[in-house]
Nucleic acid binder design. Sequence first.
DNA 1: ATCGGAAACTTTCCACTGTCAACTGTCCAA
DNA 2: TTGGACAGTTGACAGTGGAAAGTTTCCGAT
Lengths: 205, 205
Amino acid sequence: MKLVKKANAHHHGALREALLAEAERVIDTQGLEALSLRSISRAVGVTHAAPTNHFGDLTGLLSELAADGLRRLAQHLHTAIRVAGPGLRERAHAMARAYLHFAIEHPGLLVLMSRSAHLDPTRPALREAMEQASRVLDDFADEIQKAKGVDPVRAAAERTALRALIHGYSALLIDGRLERTLAALPEGTTAESFFDVVLDVIDFP
Amino acid sequence: MKLVKKANAHHHGALREALLAEAERVIDTQGLEALSLRSISRAVGVTHAAPTNHFGDLTGLLSELAADGLRRLAQHLHTAIRVAGPGLRERAHAMARAYLHFAIEHPGLLVLMSRSAHLDPTRPALREAMEQASRVLDDFADEIQKAKGVDPVRAAAERTALRALIHGYSALLIDGRLERTLAALPEGTTAESFFDVVLDVIDFP
DNA sequence: ATCGGAAACTTTCCACTGTCAACTGTCCAA
DNA sequence: TTGGACAGTTGACAGTGGAAAGTTTCCGAT
């Protein structure tokens, strides 16, 4: 029965998902530059023009993939914050650690998300996913704002510092530019355990 | 006399520099993705295979360009630190501000430097330039180490935090992902002036 | 002075890419 | 039954980077 479906040359059945899965596999193992529309089509067993029906063009496919990644990241961060202890510092660390964890597990996906040149922000799925991810940070920012003094500039600065620190550390790590630093640390120190110390350079009350 | 030189079809004279200059122009105005070996060759008035003599392949050209950028950046940071006041905080801020300034003026170049997939680190010029740039940071790190307590892990964390914060803020800004944050700030606040406040989230003694 | 080779650039070719237009088969609803 | 809409295919096009081989120029050794 399945063979009949397989033999059908014009209805793959779940091509959209298959293409996204293959694209994510390539992007996380060989990197974004190694990905090509034609190669993933081949890997999925379909001709090179098939993806057009589902994604339009390459930036369309990448945008959907990025949207999916953003949704998962937002979910990941959200539960990390929710599960963490009550303190502001604990929650901030939990979120940051969750982000780093995601970056280590899906390096290509994270690179893709921060490469606006390859994405089409007018796609509804991407736009929504970006807003969903922002909302996690914004909610947390509100918390900081409430907990600390109400100087709005200072609050924005703290939020931005946290964001920049997380993004910067992840990017440096993924790009292999922390290797020397990590190698000089005491035996057994991992990128993740060191990140906790780095985060403490920002003081949360 | 010059016309004779110009008419010479086989000796451009300064092709190497011309190619690098054109590549930098494209990269800083249209972005890294818009650059192609053939287009810059055309712009310089030479066939597409000419660059091979000077750079080998595309990653060769990009590596030389990145090396040049790194040298200039290192120089820029070095003088910023040297010129700044005596305090540790002043010097750190001066360096960070210089970095951001460079990022704003040469966004494409900065992106290129942090995209290891396009670079060939075995090229001597690149390797040297990377070490030169690292040295600026390392020297400054030693200063921090001396000025503050001698816990090496804590010192490494502070250095890394500063690095990640600078890199992260620049990357977010270049990618246009700070626009909403900046728009919500008081009138007249620029990305650069706000950066000073962000940097203060890390406390230097 | 010239001869030989190295350096610099051109030409030609190849494999590959993304995008487009035209076609074919399949399924479902009027 | 028939007519689209959907989901693929096929084939062409312009563009890319790279390799190979040919051409022109220069320059140093003899």
